[in-house]
Simulated scan of single mutants.
Amino acid sequence: MTASVTLDHCVIHVSDWDRSEEFYREVMGAEIIHEDVGFAIRFGEQQLNCHGPGKDAVPLARRPVMPGNSDLCFRWHGPIAGAAEHLAAKGVAVELGPVERRGALGSGRSVYFRDPDGSLMEFISYDG
């Protein structure tokens, strides 16, 4: 029998808990789940666990990701112009886009921006 898997969660590292919580809640629309080792950022059934200063998580990757080293793409539901407008309203600069990209569902349009630590963030839309 072949196993069937989907991504449940992955880990990012933040340098400032409060600043990151505000960004992911206000800009990304995430639900923040507070835990003993920091917090998790939840988007429906997907989750990012956060590691950061003053919290010891076990186990860790052999070479844990550092703040600003992540490259994450999130699906934007609706036209990509709405994503760019949303980022502008939140004071977040678009670094690139809209540009054509391929994602998990095929061809889409993306805008790129940064989280407070400098990680590259992408919104991709399959809706135009």
Rank of each mutant, 00 (worst) to 15 (best):
E21M: 10
L60Y: 03
Y24P: 06
P64F: 00
A30T: 02
A88K: 15
F74R: 07
C73R: 12
R25G: 00
R42T: 11
D115C: 04
P98I: 08
F23E: 02
L60H: 07
A61F: 13
I32W: 08
L7W: 02
A88Q: 14
G97S: 09
F74M: 09
E100L: 08
S4L: 13
C50Y: 02
R75C: 03
E85C: 03
I12S: 01
V111N: 07
K55Y: 12
A104K: 14
G29D: 00
D115F: 00
L72D: 00
V99A: 07
S110M: 11
P59W: 01
V111D: 05
P79C: 10
L105I: 08
H86M: 09
G29N: 00
R102C: 07
I12V: 12
F43G: 01
N69L: 03
I12T: 01
R114L: 04
G68P: 03
R75E: 15
D16M: 05
V94Q: 03
G108C: 02
A61Q: 14
V92Q: 01
M1T: 12
F113K: 11
I41Q: 06
G68A: 08
S20M: 10
F43Q: 03
A40H: 09
G103H: 06
F39H: 15
V14E: 00
S125V: 08
F39P: 08
P53C: 01
S107R: 15
D36G: 14
A88T: 15
G82T: 13
L96I: 14
L87T: 08
S70W: 02
E45W: 04
V58N: 12
P79R: 15
Q47D: 06
